[in-house]
Design a protein around this nucleic acid. Structure first.
Lengths: 361, 361
DNA sequence: TTGTATGCGTTATCAG
DNA sequence: CTGATAACGCATACAA
């Protein structure tokens, strides 16, 4: 490739700058700048001329130059494990909507449940091109030093869903404990006795919270907790075979579970996929309930009930909190944890079972 | 709020700059800059010192300053109507994956099917803070002058899915014609005679392509096209009531259709939702097939078949094309339109009908 | 091999 | 009311 740089410059559109306006109008750049910002110390006549010329030539301030000067980019970073996950895409939807209303850009990156990618994603934009960060940590992440450092350096951070307890900043989560408790309770009320749980690694806050709810529901109803019925998926269900393995283990159990509680979106989806390939009907062969935010779920009369998180709202709340910090309407020390309620959608065959169970009472 | 600006400066972390390193080491900024870039004209000793100091103090170049200097931001813009739509979230997934591999940031904005928002979203980042744009136009957009202007100004643009014919640039689409043709054919083969179509406005390329496929399949099989059976949703199904209205119109038809072809993700989903509220079972009362990329669809033994677009791949291809243009590995005049195949997933009751139809042949 | 000066586009400070 | 100058952080042409 020959003189690439020069060619680039030739080809690329050169937008009009303040300097161009100044030259064309025989003014100084500072006058033009002030006129454009409608400063009171500029004569109406000059203002008119400048504004007119700017309008006609479609002048737009260069956001990058502004960012350099103001040391703020008016953009925020969002890191989630996966965009094409209905829960996270709904969260992002909420974030974007508030960001848009406030003139902020949203830069998105996926960790794909990999700690390494999370760090890499953090590094570049983090250094100085984003004003704040909304993050849901990956299943793989155990070492949060990088985030801690960032936080100490005063980067505004808001955690959504998968939070880090040790870092004191704003957090937005669903009421995972209650959600899991009610889900497990529902299975119990349907008549199931041996209820297994498939969950993400214990390193994730959501796993701990949901597992606690699951356990409480069991003990509150006089069912003993069997650790053999609790299975962890290290990669959060990103690797299909992983879910397959734990399900196989469960089904091979001498004392096979009669129901499963899936503690995360991806796990729920993959569980269903497995039962499909095994040609097992759910919940005739096995009862199942899981966290899920997939849109179509409620439409297709699926064979299971789901716990749904207020994803869009969580995104909105997270972005609002982040804005408060960025625009320092709120000191960094005054942080809070917002807990939003989950919703349980009871339907399909579980519903019938549930009704039957109620009848016999 | 008192001296906000000053407070901001105090609070905000000031990252280390080249200037700081130079001062600390008693060197000039240019020497430091060159040492960091591993220039050959710097002595190994100096390099070592600089690199060591930079490492120790966790120096990171300021991306914004770099952008200003190099007149490129290493970030691209993506505009879709809705992120929380499984098709688009999968496209974005593909875009992000290629962008990440090449060190690009992805800035996302939603038009929410509104032309006004599309323009507004375009304006800010477009001016100079993105190096390229991937866009899927909104249902509302009829006037593409803004995009044309952008294109003339040499902003690299790639269209995905919903393209603009008049603008000569790279385009990535699914084979909508064939997808719609096969979908309609499938309904015909299932024994349906009066097949309605619910579609987005004709202004969208996908609507035109899909409707053409639908019509061809009908005429090829000796079925007359009935314009009363073709219904348009001006807001692309974003407004639920809109879909409800057209479905009601169809069902109120003296000569009621026995099947429906839904020509877009959102329309398919909302059709199902309507039949659910009407307590109509699909396809016992009415046959239905539609475009849909929802993940769970294949898992729940849904009552319908779907046409699926290769969303992730479309995103990947779009980003690769965009990179070629941005890094001028390819002249702007040499553009191409990539057409990727759709996939039809036949299942549920439609499958049984289909099998029965085949038997009787 | 290193340093000085300049510019990227903008705004703020100070001077006129 | 307006203009010259410096600065934001970095890279590079030119000097030494």
């Amino acid at each position: 490739m020959f003189n690439n740089r020069k060619r680039l410059l030739e080809m690329k559109f050169e937008a009009i700058t303040i300097k161009d306006i100044a030259k064309a109008l025989g003014l100084s750049t500072s006058t033009v700048s002030r006129a454009l910002r409608d400063s009171h110390e500029i004569s109406p006549e000059t203002k008119r001329i400048v504004l007119e010329y700017a309008e006609k030539n479609n002048y737009k301030p260069n956001p990058i130059a502004l960012s350099l000067k103001e040391r703020r980019s008016r953009s925020i970073g969002v890191i989630v494990c996966e965009i094409a996950n209905s829960y996270f895409s709904q969260v992002i939807n909420g974030i974007e909507s508030i960001a848009y209303d406030n003139g902020y850009n949203v830069i998105i990156a996926q960790s794909r449940e990999s700690f390494e990618k999370e760090i890499l994603n953090l590094q570049y934009p983090t250094s100085r091109s984003i004003d704040g960060l909304i993050i849901s940590v990956s299943t793989e992440s155990k070492d949060f030093n990088y985030l801690k450092e960032l936080h100490q350096k005063k980067m505004p951070i808001v955690f959504v869903d998968r939070i880090v307890d040790e870092i004191e900043t704003h957090k937005v989560i669903a009421d995972n404990y209650t959600g899991a408790y009610n889900a497990t309770l529902h299975l119990i009320e349907c008549g199931y006795k041996r209820i297994a749980a498939i969950t993400n690694p214990f390193t994730l806050s959501i796993s701990r919270e949901r597992l606690a709810g699951y356990k409480s529901a069991l003990t509150d109803n006089g069912i003993e907790i069997d650790d053999e019925l609790i299975k962890y998926c290290q990669h959060g269900g990103m690797v299909f075979s992983e879910v397959q393995t734990v399900v196989d283990e469960l089904l091979a159990n001498k004392n096979r579970p009669d129901a499963i509680f899936a503690a995360a979106d991806k796990l729920t989806t993959n569980c269903l996929r497995i039962f499909k390939t095994k040609k097992m009907s759910v919940p005739d062969d096995i009862g199942i309930i899981g966290f899920s935010n997939i849109d179509l779920a409620e439409l297709l009369n699926p064979p299971m009930s789901v716990i749904r998180q207020p994803a869009f709202e969580m995104g909105e709340v997270a972005m609002k909190l982040l804005l408060q910090v960025i625009e320092s309407k709120r000191p960094v020390t005054d942080f809070e944890t917002k807990i939003l309620s989950t919703e349980m959608l009871i339907r399909g065959s579980t519903k019938k079972l549930f009704a039957k169970a109620k009848e016999t009472v």
